[in-house]
Design a binder for these strands. Sequence first.
DNA 1: GTCAATATGTTCGCTACCCGACAGATTAAT
DNA 2: ATTAATCTGTCGGGTAGCGAACATATTGAC
Lengths: 240, 240
Amino acid sequence: MVIEEIYLSEQSILSVKNQLLQTLPKEDLLRLSVHLEPVELPSGKYLYRPLEPISHVYFPNDAVASIVANTSAGRSTEVGIIGREGAVGLDVLMSVDSSPNECMIQIPGDGWRLPTSVIRDEFKLCGTVHFRLLRFIHKLMIQISQTTLCNRLHSIEERLSRWLLMCHDRVDGDEIKLTQEFLATMLGVNRPSVSISAVSLQNRGFIKYSRGHITVINRPGLEELTCECFQIVKNEYNRV
Amino acid sequence: MVIEEIYLSEQSILSVKNQLLQTLPKEDLLRLSVHLEPVELPSGKYLYRPLEPISHVYFPNDAVASIVANTSAGRSTEVGIIGREGAVGLDVLMSVDSSPNECMIQIPGDGWRLPTSVIRDEFKLCGTVHFRLLRFIHKLMIQISQTTLCNRLHSIEERLSRWLLMCHDRVDGDEIKLTQEFLATMLGVNRPSVSISAVSLQNRGFIKYSRGHITVINRPGLEELTCECFQIVKNEYNRV
DNA sequence: GTCAATATGTTCGCTACCCGACAGATTAAT
DNA sequence: ATTAATCTGTCGGGTAGCGAACATATTGAC
């Protein structure tokens, strides 16, 4: 993919690892590239907050973001996860300015962003980008639906494995930087439960970890241990 | 319900209790009405099945449909509920033909339907209908997200109350026709647990029930008992 | 190197819920 | 009316996960 224009430099285009952007027809990407801004996405950064206007849509390259729902009592659960396969903040395409949920960076990295106004204008063209974005929104809906079921019916160990696999699919390499405390919040469980499951996974030789990072060392093992939810969502993402 | 024209008779238009249709600009509804077909929606009817093509989009009047996710082991959970405020099967607008979930009628009634091809053509016009449908899809996403959290963090009694309230909002009158067995499947819990919660709600005078139907007799009581998830989703639906 | 901060491992009592089983109650069918 | 089918209530053993507490290990700051 070579673009000679002044907008995105050759080098920048090469670093468009975000698959949603990457697979757009060349002319569409070119049009958007005028407005694409590279951004660092450090761990913990909020991309939007509950009921506050969503200012930009983000396209992660190697970062991973979580959509999180909160209770007024201060408990939280992750409802969805978005990485290089998609975009964050597409709510703004659906006649709203904000969401009751929030979105934060789980796994740090970088990405691109577009102002809300730009993505809305592009969306109104009702061209290829429009339908690609809608297709991604659907995948995300299916992911959230499956998490609804998973949260109800599956064990912490199964869900932890699924979470690690979903992250693993979205990062470069096998190392995932996060604490068990953090994981507990994402899974909506208490921290000691994560510890117990993590020990179990480590004893089986599936993962290895210490203070704030986890390394996947036997992915097939995790895939066998986790519930079918992982594959169901993955199949949906692979459907054309 | 009699249709004398190929269009909708005045009388039929009056019986369009589906709010998504009802609140469309008149010319949009007129255009669609050519293709709108009235349908009975009996309890248990499947509007679509997992990974099978979605043939029609349904607009319930007084019926209520559930989007259900299943495990291969035969367990199920409801992930979302759709009544007169929306439409069933909008997945077809998002570049897919089917969903890994299924959708069935919980509360019988009637409604309207459009062939997939018609709604897709209408959607491509990118007019008012387009954006109204997207707005509803967003509301549904928020509902599903909140259910993800609710399934993880809230008690059966809270969730049962929420479910009854959501149904109550979507039907005429105070009676809801369904068995506890059915409720257990929707909530993804075992049947005796529903029985215990139902007894509790009845003892407090919030509901009254017998063999296959439940009557809401103290709605404010239920609203006080349930978790905040109910109101969060409702607020989202009331947002313009 | 010392100390504070943070991350992790582990224990223990408790509770919500599961699962299976069964009994009683209501309705429908003949 | 009798029977069968369905729906509902309840019991009791078992377990996953909660919550609080505390011990230990690792890291970073000074």
